[in-house]
């Protein structure tokens, strides 16, 4: 397989980043059914807007079409997947088997995750796996690609799975002071790119990036900042109060709240419209600001159950058209 031009995987995302473009990734949640049209529909919103889409792996521990299957459908629909794989559902055998299958079926980006705990999802009585953690999964992906070695040490005969290896980072999770170090560990393990947890707190993220730059991690990995438009004040408060690793400053919530000022409180549709418009505007501004931070290589747009927002966001941030590399 191609190590042409020194590319690790040859994925579009890798090429975009390699060419020095500001990368944009999106998110595609597979259906809770066997319906392929669901994916086609979502791809319709995302195609041409992003360089690759994350295909989630039983996100929030709710059973969905597998990330492998949905990634292959995405490939068929002409959009590049970043296949997510959690350590929750697979041991090292199953993970490697799916890596082989994914590569054979045209998937070129893989994102290693520990996975949401099953207690959050719709099968809370299940047993989790956690044979390895995400750090070890990254290392395994790298060894498969660069050493042609299975995790057990056996050398592979034949074509090895070559992925552009992704990892997650939560800059604001606790203990905050350890987060740059944990990123360093992921980079050392072999992460080619990083997608962060949703960022709303710009000052906190800037501080994190300062540490990251001191450790020169941004030179070794491509950091894509997680951004997502707020649908309204309630969502902001929910993120602030209930999602670990996300802080939402008061001024952010105040601003989106103010968007509905002057609108008849009874007119829910009008309020929602105003909030959403403001949410998109705020997100565009955030993208523009993080773009200026040294060491930020792109954004990962998470428009949760709001795929239609991706186009106005990316367009508004001046990131269209997406580069063809």
């Amino acid at each position: 397989m191609s190590t042409d031009n020194g590319l690790k995987s040859g994925s579009n995302l890798e090429k975009v980043l390699r060419a020095g473009h500001f990368a944009v990734t999106g998110e595609l949640g597979p259906p809770q059914s066997a319906d392929p049209d669901h994916i086609k529909e979502k791809v319709g919103y995302l195609k041409g807007m992003v360089d690759a889409v994350n295909v989630t792996d039983n996100q929030t521990a709710v059973v969905r079409m597998s990330s492998l299957g949905a990634s292959v459908l995405a490939v068929q629909e002409g959009i590049e997947p970043v296949m997510q794989m959690t350590c929750r559902d697979r041991n090292r055998l199953a993970m490697q088997a799916d890596f082989l299958a994914a590569h054979a079926l045209g998937v070129r980006n893989m994102l290693a995750l520990s996975g949401d705990h099953q207690s959050f999802g719709n099968h809370p009585t299940s047993k989790n796996v956690h044979d390895m953690d995400s750090m070890q999964q990254i290392r395994m992906l790298k060894d498969l690609r660069d050493e042609k070695k299975f995790q057990c040490g056996d050398v592979m005969k034949g074509c090895e799975p070559r992925f552009f290896i992704g990892a997650a980072a939560a800059p604001e999770a606790h203990p905050v002071e350890w987060r740059p170090m944990r990123l360093a560990k992921k980079v050392a393990a072999g992460a080619d790119f990083i997608q962060t947890q949703l960022v709303y707190n710009l000052p906190a993220f800037k501080k994190y990036m300062e540490e990251v730059r001191k450790m020169r991690l941004h030179e070794k990995t491509a950091i894509l900042v997680g951004v997502g438009p707020l649908k309204g004040p309630a969502m902001g408060k929910y993120m602030r109060d209930f999602v670990p690793g996300i802080t939402v400053p008061d001024d952010v919530i105040a601003r989106i709240e103010a968007a509905a000022k002057g609108i008849d409180p009874e007119d829910k549709a009008a309020k929602q419209k105003a909030w959403r418009a403001e949410g998109i505007k705020m997100c565009i501004e955030l993208i523009q600001e993080v773009k200026e931070i040294e060491g930020v290589a792109g954004v990962h747009v998470m428009a949760i159950e709001w795929e239609e927002a991706v186009k106005p966001l990316v367009e508004g941030a001046g990131l269209l058209p997406r580069p063809v590399v």
Binding site: C87, R88, S114, G115, H117, S119, F120, N128, H130, M132, D133, S134, M135, Q136, A168, A169, A170, A173, H174, P175, W178, R182, K185, Q197, P244, G245
Partner: peptide, 20 residues
């Protein structure tokens, strides 16, 4: 909760695990 070997994962806040 996840027997992570290289923690803490992103679900750690104020010294508590996101898993209850």
């Amino acid at each position: 909760s996840k027997q992570v070997q290289n923690g803490p994962c992103g679900g750690s806040e104020h010294g508590l695990c996101e898993v209850k």
